[in-house]
Simulated scan of single mutants.
Amino acid sequence: MRHLPVMFSEVMEGLAVKAGGTYLDGTFGRGGHARGVLAQLGPAGRLLVMDKDPEAIAEAGRLAHDDARVAWRRGSFADLARWPLADPGLDGVLLDLGVSSPQLDVAERGFSFGKDGPLDMRMDPDSGESAAQWLAHASEKDIADVLWTYGEERQSRRIARAIVARRGDAPLLRTAQLAELIASVMPRGDSKIHPATRSFQAIRIFINRELVDLEAGLDAALERLKPGGRLAVISFHSLEDRIVKRFMASHAKAPPANRRMPVELPFTPVLRLLDGAQKAGPAELAANPRARSAVLRVAEKLAAAGGAVAA
């Protein structure tokens, strides 16, 4: 299955690519959005790409080999401000969050409960614990907390109890094992969503530190953006979108007045919100059903004095 970049036209419009600008794609994936940016850059333009996934970085390396305007770095976008190539400042940053279609489609990566494979879930398989390793030693309370915090799973305690009981007999090593175990202890209802959906999401987010990295990455992007630069973020579930929405709003709008404060603190906005929350259109949803949960938010960094700079 060919990877389809989500909300491609909306992202390109949001970034408002300048021919001579420098742009950073913090989630290269298979390069759909990155190639769109590259197509709009002139000879003096620069495209920086990052990804944790070794297969994604291999593809980025091939793109860089063919085009000297491209540079790549393996790692999390949380560290983008530490990349010297970003030091001069960026005209745009794109973060396409969550797991990519190629990762979901390859059973061996262990992301999908619909395809049996090793219970891994790491975006960077060379770093940190796999899901199987973590589930083998985590306490029942810690497992329940992760399922509730990152998956909003109401049956988190019941599922955690079942995981701990099962691993006492044999380790959970396969995605199908975990999915079947969760389904066996979940109340039967009329929901069309697989019983393991929220739990798999929660474990994946925890294993990859996705929300922690998102908060650090947003701060880093704001730090490196030039005045007039654009930040575009695609989220795929409410936890991600809530962080993005709050971050952008906190830098764009003054906080509500507090009667208990004797003196109201001055507020200088550093971001301008653009277009609100955008969703994929009907045509894209028909061609790519995975876009149904995507939410795009775009903001522009303002000049130090608080006035907008033309893109």
Rank of each mutant, 00 (worst) to 15 (best):
G168H: 10
G168M: 10
D169Y: 11
D169S: 15
L172I: 12
L173K: 11
R174I: 04
R174M: 13
T175Q: 09
T175N: 07
A176C: 05
Q177F: 11
Q177W: 10
L178P: 05
L178C: 08
A179T: 09
A179V: 03
A179S: 14
E180F: 05
E180N: 15
E180T: 15
L181C: 07
L181Y: 11
L181E: 12
I182W: 12
I182L: 13
A183D: 07
S184Y: 05
S184V: 06
V185E: 08
V185P: 07
M186E: 03
M186P: 00
P187C: 15
R188F: 02
R188H: 14
G189A: 06
G189E: 10
G189C: 08
S191Q: 10
K192S: 07
K192H: 11
K192E: 06
K192L: 09
I193E: 09
I193K: 11
H194I: 07
H194K: 03
H194Q: 04
A196F: 02
A196T: 08
R198V: 04
R198I: 03
F200G: 07
F200P: 07
F200V: 11
F200Q: 11
Q201T: 07
A202D: 08
A202L: 09
R204N: 06
R204W: 09
I205F: 00
F206C: 09
N208Q: 02
N208P: 01
R209G: 11
R209N: 15
R209I: 04
E210R: 10
E210M: 08
E210W: 06
E210A: 07
E210L: 08
V212I: 10
L214P: 13
E215G: 05
E215I: 02
A216T: 02
A216M: 02
A216E: 06
G217D: 02
L218I: 04
D219S: 14
A220D: 03
A220M: 04
A221L: 01
A221E: 00
L222R: 06
E223R: 11
R224D: 05
L225V: 06
K226V: 12
K226E: 13
K226N: 15
G228M: 12
G229E: 05
R230K: 15
R230T: 13
V233M: 07
S235K: 11
S235Q: 10
F236R: 01
S238W: 01
S238R: 02
L239Q: 05
E240L: 10
E240Y: 07
E240F: 09
D241I: 06
D241Y: 02
D241G: 04
D241L: 04
D241R: 01
I243L: 13
V244P: 06
V244D: 05
K245P: 06
R246C: 02
F247R: 02
F247K: 01
A249K: 15
